[in-house]
Design a protein around this nucleic acid. Sequence first.
DNA 1: CAGAACACCTGCCGGC
DNA 2: TGCCGGCAGGTGTTCT
Length: 273
Amino acid sequence: MPELPEVETVRRGLNRLVKGATIASIEVRWPKIINNDVDSFKSRLIGQTIERVDRRGKYLLFRFSDGLTMISHLRMEGKYNVVPANEGQDKHTHVIFHLTDDRDLLYNDTRKFGRMTLVPTGEEVTVAGLKTIGPEPTENDLTVAYLTDIFSQSKKMIKPLLLDQSKIAGIGNIYADETLWMSKIHPMRPANSLTDDEIVVLRQSIIDEMARAIKGHGTTVHSFSTFGETGKFQNQLHVYGHEGEPCERCGSLIEKIKVAQRGTHFCPHEQQL
DNA sequence: CAGAACACCTGCCGGC
DNA sequence: TGCCGGCAGGTGTTCT
């Protein structure tokens, strides 16, 4: 469920469903998901109440009553579900938070890539990933001056740069392709070759696209739903998953290539090197 | 230090 | 049908 809009959708769902809930006990079936010592992770959380869930980039931050924060990253396939006690588990359920109100908060993850880390609130910044995370893709945080600065200092291709979480938080493979298409910029353009105008357009595309995707409850690729809410944003994608189909603006066929090991979709007519 | 390659996992799809 | 390679919305580590 991975990019920023999907994580934000999960965050809102969690706040709706488990804010104020208290942990009765915890089962960990795949210990590698927990970055802490598993016994200490469990014992410190038992009896704690979820005060709220925050987000930074693609990281969820569960704020607990006793000054603890559980950092949760879903990576490729992590999902949360809230179910009646002892229901809804399957072979991909790896962590179960039994709540005191006869419900369970389940963490499911087909590929087991997701990770959870428990830290004292305020020490999030010591965790790899959050240590170096860049600004949120919002009007206030992502300034033209900042982008101009980081782009001018890098010869790297623009697409892998957009995916670099230490430069901008929250962009993933889908929205990188979508925002480059909207900005008519080839994914392999060196970052320092972008003109001032292109930077302004790309910045606005990123900010607007993230906001639109959040409004649409994110993109659902494998027909999974989040707390009963299926993201609808996949209906608004222009290039991702549309290889071989005509570009909506010019009719040229969308191509799929590999850029820095990632599948990359673009319009060869409007996005030129 | 930047950048690339690889590691971590499972499921699904297409080709033979 | 079965096996095999390749691919998937991500990031942390290790090696140049």
